[in-house]
Every structure is written in structure tokens, then in C-alpha cells.
Nucleic acid binder design. Structure first.
Lengths: 176, 176
DNA sequence: GGGAGATGATTAACATGTTAAGTAGATTTC
DNA sequence: GAAATCTACTTAACATGTTAATCATCTCCC
């Protein structure tokens, strides 16, 4: 009866002979571990955000804006960890929904200064309690101390890889 | 003077009076930590993949396929941690590039069975050395032991949050 | 003070994430 | 054994990720 392959993690033991030795048990690679962990966390928040008509990134932006009086777009991109083009689109939408306000910087007409609106603050206040409750439950389940330790290790990973970029790009054959 | 706020991390100390107490230092939230850590890692791999005309997700799929003889689409989605629609599109493209092959399952015409082609394997072999070297360098910088510990903690986080959505969403398998 | 280059932001183009709807084939139910 | 239902994808529609190109300003330097 269709004998579905069950929910075998890797699927390789039932699938016949291996073509090659697996380079690294794929699902245990660092990028996959990070991806799955983050998805497990975000899965908790998304329904609540969605109920308020917000995506994860829109929420990040409003959160960041709620902590300052105003901020320039480039710095907002840095804080909310979004690329310029994504931020541009989202700001356009949030401005159309009147959740934020935008004006040109006085000293430099290229720069735009963004701030959250009263309506935006109201939305934040509506979402925050649920969001905080979810975060508290995650902390409770995982353990506050362990969570802090995890974040420290993540920060160390990020910092340790910071200067690694320049080394490999030149090494790769470009063949032009 | 609305002077430029320099590159202050949070931007709040110079930005004037806070509108509210920050709920949680935003950039230190767990989702942000995970996002930044993963991005720091992927930033190392993307240039190499790009040189071979592959995106991160396409590489995940080929990697997963290279470890098995063949696999059904649903299980591939699970292993490569991709949603169905994304996988559908990517498989269509990879098939057009003749990097994979697809056929219908014998026992169930709804199911599709996917396998990597010789050309796909060749591509894997071309990318793997650089990829392995980058992974080795990351491991060296961070420490093999610490890396294993981090992955264990990430796994524990994922596992700990597994049953948490049943609180307000749906109970998938318990009853119906 | 004007042109070359740098910078901040947006737009373009393509790939993926995410949810909803659609389709074809299988399973159940009466 | 045919309709109702379920299942495995696939498409559709919209939002974001990612890189390149564009546009407007700004800075530097002669």
C-alpha cells in the first residue's frame, strides 16, 4: 500500500546503496542546524504577528523604530538586519499604512529619516503582550541560563567569522 | 541640529528621550541572534556556490540527493527543509538544467521520485572541495568541540519547541 | 566651481519563503 | 462502485532575500 518510507530522518538506509560517502551528514551541518532552530522559534511567533497583519520583517522594523526617536534608513537596515532593497519596499508599505513617517535629513538630502507613528506604536502595544508571553514560554522551556549561553555562543560564532570573507573569494577560480 | 547619529549600535542614547522602555534589547533577541549567526555562516559559502551557478537551496537539494539513490519529493522537502512550493519550483529548474531526474512512483502515480543525474554528481564534486575547506576553516576558528556543543544546543532548542504550537494551533496527530 | 568619484536610497530582476487554492490520483464510505 | 474525502504535489499570489543597476546628492580635488 504505497509503503511510504516512514519518517526516516536521512532516508539513506532504505533507499538502496549509497552513491558516495556522504560529505557530512547533511542535516547536521551547521547551516541546517541554525536554520531549523530559527524556524522552530519563528514558528511560535508568526501566527500572532499574522493576526495583526504583520510579517516578521515588518515587526522587526517597528520594534527597532519603537526604541528610538528617529533613525536613518541605513542604520535601520543595520539594526533590523535587512538589506537595503528589502527595507526600501517594506518602508514604502509601512508608510502607506501610516505606521511610520519619513522625512529627508536636514544636512544631507540623500538620507531619509524614519520614525514610528502613533498608529504604529499602538500596533506595537497590541502585539507586544503576546510576543512577550511566547518569548517567556520559550525561555521557560529551554532555561534562561542555557538560553543566555546559547546566545553567547551564537555571538562568538558571528564574531569569529567576521573577518573571514576576504580570504576565499580571490582563491576561487573565476575563469573569465 | 539633527546631526548624524554616528554608528551607535542601538542609537537610543543619542536619539533623545525614549518613547518607551525597550521590550527587550531588540538586537539581542533569540531570533535575531540565530539569524545573524546563520547569515555569518552562509556568507562564507554563497560566493563559492554562486561561482558554480547554484543558490543555497539548490545546493541543499543536490547535497541531499547525492546521499541517496532516489527519494520522493515530500521526503526530500523534509530532509532539505524546504516548503513544498519552493521545492516544486527548484526541482523544475534543476530538471531543466538536467542536474536531476524525475519519474513517477510505481505504486502511486501522485508521488514523484527524484534522483541526481551524472551531471549533477559532477557538479557536486566540483563544489564539494571548496565547500569542505570553508567548513573546515569555520570549524578551526570556532573550535570543533564548541561547534559540536553549539549544534547540540540548537538541536535541544528545536526539540524543546516541537510541541509548543499545539497550545493554540491544531493538534496534528493526537486526535482529529 | 565644476567634473570625477563616493555615498544613500531606490528600482530592477530573479530566486525563495509563505499561505491559499487548484489538480490529479488514491482511499474511504456507504 | 461512485461520491466524498484525503493525499501529493503544483500553481498562484504576495512578501522578502540577493545582486546589479540606477538616480540623486555629496565630497573631494584640481
Amino acid at each position: 500500500m504505497a509503503r511510504k518510507k516512514s519518517s526516516n530522518e536521512s532516508g539513506q538506509t532504505e533507499a538502496g546503496p549509497l552513491r558516495r560517502a556522504p560529505m557530512r551528514e547533511f542535516s547536521r551541518s551547521l547551516p541546517m542546524s541554525l536554520l531549523r532552530a530559527r524556524e522552530a522559534v519563528m514558528r511560535q511567533f508568526r501566527p500572532s504577528l499574522r493576526n495583526h497583519g504583520l510579517t516578521e520583517q515588518q515587526w522587526r522594523i517597528l520594534r527597532a523604530l519603537s526604541a528610538v526617536d528617529e533613525i536613518e534608513v541605513t542604520e535601520l537596515a543595520h539594526v533590523a538586519f535587512l538589506l537595503g532593497p528589502s527595507l526600501s519596499r517594506i518602508l514604502r508599505d509601512l508608510e502607506a499604512r501610516q505606521l511610520i513617517e519619513r522625512k529627508a535629513a536636514e544636512t544631507d538630502a540623500r538620507r531619509a529619516v524614519v520614525s514610528i507613528s502613533a498608529k504604529g506604536l499602538k500596533l506595537i502595544e497590541a502585539v507586544a503582550p503576546t510576543s512577550e508571553a511566547i518569548y517567556a514560554e520559550i525561555t521557560r522551556r529551554y532555561g534562561a541560563r542555557k538560553l543566555a549561553e546559547l546566545q553567547e555562543m551564537l555571538g562568538a560564532l558571528e564574531a569569529g567569522l567576521a573577518g573571514m570573507n576576504s580570504a576565499d573569494e580571490a582563491e576561487l577560480e573565476a575563469d573569465e
